Structure formats: C-alpha cells, structure tokens
Computed example of a mutant assay.
Amino acid sequence: MIPASLLSSIPGVLDVQGPITSPRCVVYDSPHSGLDLPRDFHPAVDQEMVLKASDSYVDELFAHAPHTGAPLLRALFPRSFLDVNRAENDVDLAMIEGHWPYPVAGSSAAQRGMGLAWRFAWGDTLMHDRLLTVAEMQNRIDQYWTPYHNRLKALLDQTYQAFGRVYHINCHSMPAFGHALSPDPAGTRRPDFVIGDFDGQSAERSFVDMIKTSLSDMGYDVVLNKPFRGAELIRRYCDPARGRHSVQIEVNRALYMDEATRAKSAGFARIQSDLAKLSENVEGYAASALKG
C-alpha cells in the first residue's frame, strides 16, 4: 500500500490520484498540465498567454493509469511559472535582478528563455515586465519545485522498495510544429508521439520498444528522442542497472485539441482510449518483468 501521506494534495502545488486497484511497480507524473495561476505570480501577459505552453489535458489523457495500479502525480501550476522538468540550478540569469548567489547550469533551454522559470511567454513576448528578485525565484523553488520533486521521488522510492524495480512514465504534450523557443527549427512538423529515453540511458530498451510498438500498432507515427529525449524528471530518477526505468512520452497536441483555443477536439476520446490501452500494456510489461 502507498502511505496516505504520499497521496495527499498540496493546494496550488500538486495532487496525486492513487491506485484504484492493487498497486503495481509503475508511477506516472504529469508535470506540465497545471493551469492554476499562483497568487504570487504577476505576469505582464494575460492568462491565455501564460497557459499557451501548458500541457493542457495531459493528466486527463493518462487518467486510466490509476486503474492499472499506478499513482498519477500532477503539478497544479503552469510550467512557465516554474518548470519542474528543469534542474533547480537551471536559472536564467537574464531574468534575475542583482546577483544570483548559487551555481547555474547554463543549459540551452535557459538560453532560449525556457529555463526553470520562463523569460518569454511565447516567441519574443516577455513573461514579466520587470526582473525577478532573488527572493522571488528562490520562493518558487522552495514552494513548488522542491515539493513536486520530493513527492515524485518518494512515490518512486516507495514503489521500488515494494517491488524491487519501478517503471516511471513522464507525461507531456507538444505543439504540432517547432517554434521559436523549441530545440527543433520553427515550422518543423512533429510526429504523433516522441518517446524519450535520454538517448538510451534512462530505461531498458525492451521497455522503450514495447511503448513504441504499442503506439505504432495503433497507427501512430512514433519517433525516439527527436526532438525531445527527456529532461530532468527522467534524468534525475533513472538507474536502469538497478531496475529504475524512466521514459518520457510526448503527445502531439494536434491529435486531441485545437492549439489556438486550447479546446478539446473530436480526436480527444480516441487518444484517451488508446493511452488507456498503452497503460494496460505498461502494467502487463511490468508484471511480466517481476515474474522474470
């Protein structure tokens, strides 16, 4: 059983849907589906612009996961306010007032304005009309990044201790085309799904192949690691040699929503149903791995 403390919500920060059936050695998380604007967030753009980068409905797309015995953790705040899929030191110094007193990662994402907190709302439109203070950025880390990572780590550790292995599915969506802030060139048409395993480093290949084959057999165009190989939430918690496997799944938003209005499209039900089938396949793979 998963302790009740790990299934409790933190208002405005995270919630967890616990397993509806007997727990299995699988954990899901949706770090970018949050839409609640924190009270201490004062962007210079409207709410629609803030939420443009959110993985709208991804938590709903993977809602079947608890029915297969897996908890589903989700963040409640927008990724552009604070992106828990970045390292805590991936601070964009161009948006900080004064001296940041800690080391920084200097990642390519931060250089594009998509670091721990987003400098740009979209394109070249600034998220804030002023620089953030050191205290403001530190508060975002303390109040949002740290609780989310602590909870995910605890869920993964609890599952690993119970079963001797854990399979982690990190759930995301992506715009249909590359854009000014993305790692691929603007206008690049993207596949239906991108599976990220950190270029083969975050999970055993048979697990990744099962996911890819499952989606391909459903008729989807599936690519590995391009343009997204996964980021902090799989890098930080994977250790395949010890039975800790993490995979990132990116779903093309054009399959299930209107990107301009963020409204669900007619394709939503099919994607949700197919991802429920994928969750069943993941559970079956994990069960077989425990027996083997």
Score class of each variant (00 low, 15 high):
residue 129 D to M: 06
residue 59 D to W: 00
residue 286 A to I: 04
residue 46 D to H: 10
residue 84 V to C: 11
residue 201 Q to C: 11
residue 171 C to A: 11
residue 283 E to L: 11
residue 92 D to E: 05
residue 202 S to N: 04
residue 186 A to E: 15
residue 267 G to R: 10
residue 150 N to S: 14
residue 273 S to I: 04
residue 43 P to Q: 06
residue 148 Y to F: 14
residue 75 A to Q: 00
residue 255 L to W: 02
residue 149 H to F: 09
residue 246 S to L: 01
residue 7 L to I: 04
residue 178 G to E: 14
residue 221 D to E: 14
residue 166 V to L: 08
residue 8 S to V: 08
residue 94 A to M: 11
residue 19 P to K: 03
residue 170 N to H: 14
residue 179 H to E: 13
residue 41 F to E: 05
residue 257 M to P: 02
residue 182 S to Y: 15
residue 80 S to E: 02
residue 53 A to W: 00
residue 178 G to F: 14
residue 32 H to T: 02
residue 220 Y to R: 12
residue 108 S to I: 13
residue 218 M to N: 08
residue 13 V to T: 05
residue 97 E to Q: 12
residue 94 A to P: 02
residue 252 N to D: 14
residue 223 V to K: 04
residue 197 D to E: 08
residue 212 K to L: 12
residue 90 D to L: 06
residue 103 P to V: 09
residue 19 P to Y: 05
residue 184 D to Y: 08
residue 139 N to L: 08
residue 212 K to V: 13
residue 212 K to E: 15
residue 186 A to M: 15
residue 258 D to V: 12
residue 146 T to D: 11
residue 113 G to P: 01
residue 89 N to D: 13
residue 281 N to A: 12
residue 164 G to I: 09
residue 37 L to P: 02
residue 178 G to T: 14
residue 260 A to F: 06
residue 159 T to V: 13
residue 205 R to Q: 10
residue 109 A to F: 06
residue 220 Y to D: 11
residue 167 Y to P: 04
residue 113 G to K: 00
residue 206 S to E: 13
residue 59 D to H: 08
residue 30 S to M: 03
residue 264 K to I: 07
residue 209 D to K: 13
residue 227 P to D: 09
residue 2 I to H: 09
residue 132 L to Q: 01
